[in-house]
Design a protein around this nucleic acid. Structure first.
Length: 143
DNA sequence: AGCCATGCACCG
DNA sequence: CGGTGCATGGCT
């Protein structure tokens, strides 16, 4: 009967770019949040009534340590400029502590009580697992 | 749309 | 004064 109009994703993830981890020498230390559909509904809604609105979000990591990140909507396109994008900033300490590199994945999760979790998934160094599976099978050989 | 880069303000 | 994050411009 009553379908939810807005399914809020419990979990979203992002593969880190080199710029996200600071490997490129940049110093904004914020990762871009794509505006595509359900990703944004994970975050609090920020409109374009005010310029560059933001919300501080607290995440808990594996060891229950709390991290405060800043979710910012750079929206100066609606004022005097060209920006129209969302970023999650203030992650330098977290990235350093976990020694994250480009290719690693960050997973953000929402609990039912509204609290948020942050997890990570290292990039695989080797990706030969699927390929090797086929290697040792027997074959019928025509004589 | 996403990533890279950077001048400046702030703060220790 | 060096590191960090803000705000923004620029490039692909």
């Amino acid at each position: 009967m009553s379908y939810k109009q807005h399914e809020i994703p419990m979990s979203i993830s992002k593969v880190l770019s080199a710029n996200d981890t600071g490997e490129t020498g940049g110093h904004q230390a914020g990762m871009l949040i794509p505006k595509t559909g359900d990703i944004l509904s994970f975050f609090p809604q920020l409109g374009n009534e005010t310029k560059n609105p933001r919300a501080k979000l607290r995440f808990l990591d594996n060891s229950n340590e709390a991290w405060d990140f800043m979710f910012i909507y750079y929206n100066n396109k609606f004022f005097n400029g060209t920006r129209n994008e969302f970023r999650l900033t203030g992650m330098t300490a977290f990235i350093r502590q976990n020694n994250l590199k480009a290719g690693d994945k960050i997973i953000l999760t929402r609990e039912e009580d509204g609290s948020r979790l942050i997890k990570l998934e290292r990039a695989e160094q080797v990706e030969s697992v699927n390929i090797l599976k086929l290697g040792s099978s027997w074959k019928v050989v025509k004589i």
